[in-house]
Design a protein around this nucleic acid. Structure first.
Lengths: 125, 125
DNA sequence: TAACTGTATAACCACTTAGTTATATTGTCA
DNA sequence: TGACAATATAACTAAGTGGTTATACAGTTA
């Protein structure tokens, strides 16, 4: 096993690509917004489209992307489709980013609500 | 303060854009590779270019991007420039993604070396 | 000064991506 | 069956991105 001098494994290029792909899914504001809504619970496509103020085809596209990335599950009931979060680590990732950003921009820290995030973090999941 | 039903704050669009931008920086395999090298310590641009097997202009471009994102620091000595990691939370993020991926692809789990990452996680930083 | 080294930048290209509009698909209900 | 509703997909466009090559900019050394 390849280790660097911090005793940390050096990942293969293939593995790096998979990690990068995961970050890429989270690198779009609209998708983050969708995830925020989904955190409140399973939601239909039409309800999501309204909530995030975008068109249905656009939301459907993002949902498919995130589902294929393994972040969402899909459940159909009649002709309504409900999506929900299947990998809650996405919020763990967002929390880490928020803390880091809050630390950097101490001036705008309230935007990221460091305190609130930290308070919630302990009791989630 | 806006909270959803998980008692989690709903971030503003502006904040979501900042978070998304951070994920975007990490969404490229070459940048992740550079970060891996930098984790072993401060490195010059030329040494980095060799290590990641890319051209100097390309590496310089990625370095500038990551520095502007607040992940790297730059130090010049003579006409050699050394970059180093200024925000170690990037590795925290990578660890979370690796664990999540390892869980999903149990078959290819060894690629992400769950065990190794977890073992190291506790004593880092 | 001039030659050389290391890094940054400019210009360009192939490719990807988020969004829109139009349409297809699937399910329900009369 | 037909009309309708919810979702998915196709085709397209404008904007962004990673890489390359060439060149500019500093800093060192003769």
């Amino acid at each position: 096993m390849t280790m660097n001098k911090n005793n940390r494994q050096t990942m293969s290029l293939e593995a790096l690509q998979l990690v990068a792909a995961r970050f890429k899914v989270l690198s779009d504001p609209m998708r983050l917004r969708i995830l925020q809504v989904l955190e409140t619970g399973e939601t239909s496509v039409s309800a999501l489209s309204e909530a995030v103020e975008s068109t249905q085809p656009n939301v459907s596209k993002h949902l498919k992307l995130m589902q294929e990335a393994g972040m969402l599950s899909r459940r159909q009931e009649g002709n309504t489709v409900y999506y929900s979060i299947s990998d809650p680590t996405v919020f763990e990732l967002c929390d880490v980013v928020c803390s880091s950003l809050a630390e950097r921009f101490a001036a705008h820290a309230s935007v990221f609500s460091t305190g609130a995030v930290h308070a919630v973090r302990g009791r989630r999941r």
